[in-house]
Simulated assay, not measured.
Amino acid sequence: MKHVMNYKKPAFWVIIASVVTCIVVAVCFLTNPKDSDSKRIDPFGKYYKVRDIIYESGAYAFSYTTETTPKYYVTNEKELLVLEDKSSTSWLNAGTFEEVGLTKDNFDRYFRGVRGSASSLRSNNQKAWRLLVNDSPDTVFYYLLLQKNGDVYLTYGYYDASEKDDPASDDTSIRWVFSLIEDELN
């Protein structure tokens, strides 16, 4: 009883500090952080198989199906290994990816006839890497695309190094775009 009778109100500043602390804690628990680096998907250090072929240039006679496409391994060092013959264990090292920014000039214009899918891939892209297999004219090149939703795509095309400074005569083109899925069997 004595304690109840002798109760004193806390100082005004203690009440204010308590209210501010409660508000800060509530805001921290009620907000979702933006995509943090710990939640981002890393496309490296994984084996992939083709889930779907989302683009194929009609300019060539040879065609893939999802069953006949190669398997891919993208190392932690950003190297692309390709397994063309799935019955063997001979992986071909195609080279090392370098990070690039996608633009209409270095990406969209390489799609012959179909512009919508290129701009959609570019606008939904989080990060992109390009690999030129070698620097000779008409070399094979790849893009590895990590989309904002976590999907991974691989493009395969032909890079016309001799015409790269003359866009009007540049024959660089993307032949296929593969939607990749991790291959757990390797």
Rank of each mutant, 00 (worst) to 15 (best):
P33G: 06
Y7W: 15
N125G: 07
F141A: 06
E67N: 07
K148I: 08
N32S: 06
V14L: 13
F178I: 00
R130A: 07
Y60D: 04
N32M: 02
R130T: 11
K2W: 15
W176N: 06
T68V: 00
D52A: 09
V74I: 15
S18N: 08
F12D: 06
N134D: 15
K86C: 02
G150D: 08
T139S: 15
V140Q: 11
T155Q: 05
D108Y: 02
S179G: 04
N76I: 01
G58W: 00
T75S: 15
L144A: 04
Y153G: 02
V152F: 05
G58P: 02
S173W: 00
L154T: 00
S63C: 02
E79C: 04
H3P: 08
S117C: 06
A118F: 05
L30A: 13
E98L: 07
S120M: 08
R122M: 15
R175M: 10
K164D: 12
T155H: 03
T21W: 08
K148S: 11
N149A: 11
V82L: 10
K34W: 08
T69I: 01
V14F: 11
F29Q: 10
F107P: 01
V4I: 14
K164F: 09
V140H: 07
K78M: 11
T68C: 01
D52S: 11
F44N: 04
S117F: 02
F44M: 06
L30V: 08
A59L: 12
R115T: 15
Y153M: 07
S179L: 12
G116N: 14
V140G: 03
D105N: 10
V114E: 14
D171R: 06
T21M: 14
E163L: 03
V25D: 01
D170L: 03
R112M: 13
D108Q: 05
G116A: 14
L180F: 02
Y73V: 00
A168Q: 12
D138F: 15
A17H: 02
F141W: 09
R112K: 15
P70N: 03
G45Q: 05
K164E: 14
V50P: 05
K9F: 13
F141H: 13
L121Q: 08
F29I: 10
Y159E: 10
V82T: 12
G45E: 06
P43Y: 05
L92P: 00
D165G: 04
Y142G: 03
D151K: 14
V133I: 07
A11S: 13
L154F: 00
R115A: 13
G116I: 10
N106Q: 09
Y110A: 07
D105I: 07
G95Q: 02
G157I: 10
R122W: 11
G157P: 04
S136C: 03
T96K: 15
V19C: 10
Y153Q: 08
P10G: 05
N6G: 08
S90I: 09
E182R: 06
K71Y: 01
F141T: 10
Y47V: 03
S63F: 00
T139C: 09
V82C: 03
K49Q: 12
Y60R: 04
R51I: 00
A128W: 03
S120R: 08
L121G: 01
D166G: 02
E67L: 01
K49I: 04
R112N: 14
R51F: 01
G45A: 05
R122T: 12
Y110Q: 07
L92W: 07
